[in-house]
Amino acid sequence: MAEIDSRTARRTRRRRALAVTAAGLFLGLGAAGTALAVPDTTTVPGTPCSEAAQACVDLASDQAWIIENGAVTYGPVDISHGGQGTETPTGDFAVYDKDADHYSAEFDGAPMPWSVFFAPGGIAFHEGDRNSTSAGCVKLRSHDATVFFGKLDQNARVEVR
């Protein structure tokens, strides 16, 4: 019974992501979670992201931050991200779903605890082994993943550089 509930929850999340994608394309906003207009170009000191970001990822330095009211409130924290052929997408996104106990439907039920989904294709922040690349997700230490999960709500702006 729990397996059926889990599958139903995964299907619901996928449908939501598809609906967000369709709505964004219809409105001319781009793909699910993607914001085309940058409301503020002032960069937060110590990060490559704007003051409008609530989460910032720097793929070149393998670091991420939480930003509140234009200032870093958490981080930098060490991350791992997508590898060759499964790169983490860059751009401006919005959180569209969260799941504290998520399992990957694409990768044989691999655990993805504290998932915060922000980019098309199920790309998320989540707890994971930072010594290996992901299939596009941003992997965090356990404690860092719980902080990102707690701080980022629906529609929170995520900037990946």
Rank of each mutant, 00 (worst) to 15 (best):
P113C: 10
G109N: 09
P120E: 15
E106Q: 05
D92I: 13
W114Y: 15
T133R: 09
K98I: 10
S104A: 08
G121K: 05
A94G: 13
W114K: 11
N131K: 12
G91E: 05
A94S: 14
A110V: 11
F93W: 15
S115D: 11
A124L: 06
T133F: 06
D129E: 15
F125H: 13
D129H: 14
S134L: 03
D129M: 15
P120Q: 13
V95H: 05
M112N: 05
A100C: 00
A110F: 03
M112A: 10
G109A: 03
N131F: 09
F93R: 05
D92K: 08
D92N: 14
Y103L: 12
A94N: 09
M112T: 02
D92G: 05
E106T: 01
G91M: 08
Y96G: 05
F118D: 11
M112G: 04
A94W: 01
S134M: 07
W114N: 15
V95D: 00
Y96Q: 07
F117I: 12
V116E: 12
H102N: 09
D108L: 02
H126D: 10
K98M: 11
V95T: 04
K98Q: 14
P111R: 15
D108P: 00
D97R: 00
A94M: 09
G91I: 04
I123K: 10
F93V: 09
S134N: 06
A110K: 06
F93P: 07
F118T: 11
D97F: 00
Y103F: 10
